[in-house]
Simulated assay, not measured.
Amino acid sequence: MSKGRITREAILSTAFDLASKHGLESLTIGELAKCCGMSKSGLFAHFNSKENLQISVLEFANLTFRERVIVPARDLGDEDIEHKLKALLDNWLGWNHSFQGSCMFLDAWKETGGCSSPLQVVLKKTIAVWLDYLTIQIEKGIENQQFRKDLDAKQACFELYGLYLSAHLFYSIQGEAISQQHFWQGVERLLTDWRVAS
């Protein structure tokens, strides 16, 4: 890996940490340069604009999300989809809680919602890929007869994501323990409804 690439990765890692704590919109070239021990002009040369910096951080966050949430669950295989889904959901909550209970993607959505900027385009694509992945896992559960054959995978994904959004809100109001309790009760209720009757 080239020196320039190594420097860029180090910058993005620092930017990711800052955006995780304070939100993507609050990320500035000046603040990041100070944290990286660089000049503004030196940092600017890597990204050319605040928007490009934010997009790069989102892309970095997406790669980190895959590594922390998807890859460990993917290694479980597809034989037991319910077990795999629970691992995905556990990793997903862990991702959320690693940012003081505030998901970077959701925060960025609130900050940029309603516009069609390049940042919003990247954000929509990132979330759409995750929703598609969840839907595919549910479809696999239907195919291997763990879940009912009449289950609507897209509707099931919608309901699952709704639980995550609720957990996100309850975390900020009532804390992690209560948020997780309600989340997993909701997940178990959904899975009970999805399972093939024995």
Rank of each mutant, 00 (worst) to 15 (best):
K3M: 11
K3Y: 06
G4D: 03
R5M: 05
E9F: 00
I11P: 15
S13G: 13
S13E: 10
S13T: 13
S13P: 06
T14D: 05
L18A: 07
S20F: 09
H22A: 04
G23Y: 03
G23I: 01
G23C: 03
L24C: 01
S26V: 05
T28I: 05
G30W: 00
G30N: 11
E31P: 12
L32C: 00
A33C: 06
C36I: 00
G42N: 08
L43W: 00
L43K: 01
F44V: 07
H46Q: 10
H46C: 06
H46N: 07
S49L: 13
K50S: 12
E51G: 02
N52K: 10
L53C: 04
I55Q: 07
V57A: 01
V57Q: 01
F60D: 02
A61D: 03
A61G: 05
L63N: 11
L63R: 13
F65L: 11
R66D: 04
I70N: 06
V71N: 04
R74W: 06
R74T: 11
D75T: 10
G77M: 14
E82R: 07
H83T: 15
H83L: 15
K84Y: 03
K84A: 02
K84W: 03
L85N: 10
L88N: 09
L88W: 06
D90S: 10
W92K: 02
W95T: 00
S98T: 08
F99Y: 08
G101I: 04
S102E: 09
S102T: 10
C103W: 00
F105E: 03
L106I: 13
L106R: 14
L106E: 12
D107A: 13
K110F: 05
E111A: 15
E111K: 13
T112E: 02
S116I: 02
L119D: 00
Q120V: 07
Q120S: 13
Q120I: 04
V121I: 14
L123G: 12
L123C: 11
L123H: 08
L123Y: 03
K125A: 14
K125G: 10
T126I: 15
A128Y: 06
L131N: 11
D132T: 11
D132M: 11
L134W: 07
T135F: 08
I136G: 06
Q137L: 11
G141D: 03
G141M: 01
E143V: 14
E143S: 14
Q146T: 03
R148G: 13
R148C: 13
L151V: 12
D152L: 08
D152P: 15
A153W: 04
A153K: 02
K154V: 08
A156I: 01
C157D: 05
E159G: 00
G162F: 06
L163S: 06
L163Q: 07
L165H: 05
L165M: 08
S166D: 09
A167E: 08
H168M: 14
L169H: 07
F170I: 09
F170R: 08
F170G: 03
Y171D: 06
S172Y: 12
E176T: 02
E176V: 04
E176Y: 02
A177Y: 05
S179N: 09
Q180S: 09
H182Y: 11
F183E: 00
F183S: 01
W184F: 15
Q185A: 13
G186T: 00
L190F: 13
D193Q: 15
W194L: 09
W194G: 09
V196Q: 14
V196C: 14
